[in-house]
């Protein structure tokens, strides 16, 4: 099997697992499974109609197939709370979650990489020690604690940033809306960057130290190449594929972090929607949000895989030869 079909198959397996888990979790609850799918406040007649529509009167296996078909087409049913289709609610919130996690990942990746490379180049320096400490701290700092502290400092005591929400109420118009949105997004992103740049930098530093001491770099130095070419073209390019693996590995954690971040800062995103759905026992909404978060993870894993393939000729080569 080629690299690519293997990856694709892996992604599909994860998805199938998620779907099965989702199906089982919400149906194996104590009590009437209907209660987890249909709003208990509906009239008996409409309950019966929905029961038919969801196929709850059929055998489990058939129900599962029906469920698969509906989920793949993003038909998660109606939210108990809002009464609107869950997918409509989610589609509305997804861009906010992607904006939050995407910009946090990009920024912490850039800052962490820069610091890590610099620390690896100047070993034993102050920056290296700071990087090591930041890395160690980031493993034991609860995200919400740091975020609460930031809120208290930068939104209450010294109100530079808004305390809550994705936009001001009432929302401004036009270009001011974008500025307002970014202003609201800034502190959450800063907090996520603060939480993750340390472990990034630590990882990059360790990787670069290893590569800088390797045979190819010795030869590159013997070639009389300038420091910048050594560092970025030779060492960093070599480090890139494993770094992309790190992106891949950090994605699940990042999405978990998004749930908490959106809660702390009251952002309009999928994570907080999931929490509110769970708290409000809005099972169709919770199931949909959970599936969507898993789907985003799997999709970004696949993207990171593709980027890895681009960055590492050993895999790119395999792909070309099989073609």
């Amino acid at each position: 099997m080629t690299y690519w079909s293997r990856r694709l198959l892996g992604a599909l397996t994860v998805l199938f697992f998620v779907l099965t888990l989702n199906f089982a979790l919400f149906r194996l609850m104590p009590g009437d499974p209907v209660a987890s799918l249909i709003d208990p406040r509906f009239s008996p007649e409409s309950k019966e109609a929905l029961r038919k529509a969801y196929g709850l009167d059929r055998p489990q296996a058939e129900q599962f197939l029906l469920y698969l078909k509906r989920t793949v087409t993003f038909d998660f049913g109606l939210s108990f709370i809002s009464g609107r289709p869950v997918w409509q609610e989610l589609r509305n919130r997804l861009p906010h979650t992607v904006a939050l996690t995407g910009s946090a990942l990009a920024l912490s990746g850039l800052i962490g990489t820069f610091l890590g490379v610099t620390a690896a180049r100047r070993r034993g320096g102050l920056l290296e020690r700071a990087t090591l400490t930041a890395g160690a701290l980031s493993f034991s700092f609860p995200s919400f604690f740091l975020q609460l502290l930031l809120l208290l400092l930068l939104a209450v005591f010294w109100p530079l940033f808004p305390l809550r929400g994705s936009v001001s109420v009432p929302a401004p118009q036009g270009a001011a809306l974008i500025a307002d949105y970014l202003h609201h997004l800034a502190l959450p992103v800063i907090s996520l960057v603060l939480l993750s740049f340390g472990s990034w930098a630590l990882y990059v530093r360790n990787l670069m130290v290893k590569i800088l001491g390797s045979e190819p770099l010795f030869l590159a130095r013997a070639k009389g190449l300038p420091e910048s070419i050594l560092l970025w073209r030779h060492a960093f390019r070599t480090a890139l594929p494993p770094l992309l693996t790190l992106v891949l590995l950090s994605l699940p954690g990042l999405l978990s972090g998004a749930v908490i971040t959106e809660t702390v800062f009251s952002l309009h995103g999928v994570g907080r929607f999931l929490l509110e759905s769970i708290q409000g026992q809005d099972y169709p909404a919770a199931g949909g949000a959970f599936y969507l978060l898993a789907l985003v993870t799997v999709a970004s894993n696949l993207l990171a895989d593709a980027a890895y393939g681009m960055a590492d000729p050993r895999i790119r080569f395999e792909r070309e030869r099989r073609r």
């Binding site: 045979e215 190819p216 770099l217 010795f218 030869l219 590159a220 130095r221 013997a222 070639k223 009389g224 190449l225 300038p226 030779h234 390019r237 070599t238 890139l240 594929p241 960055a311 590492d312 000729p313 050993r314």
Partner: peptide, 23 residues
């Protein structure tokens, strides 16, 4: 780097040991 390494004296390392940058 500018005027001695590689221009005056260059180097061949053990080939089977991966001396080239792989990427």
């Amino acid at each position: 780097s500018a005027s001695y390494r590689w221009t005056t004296v260059s180097l061949v390392l053990q080939g089977a040991m991966n001396a080239f940058t792989p990427v």
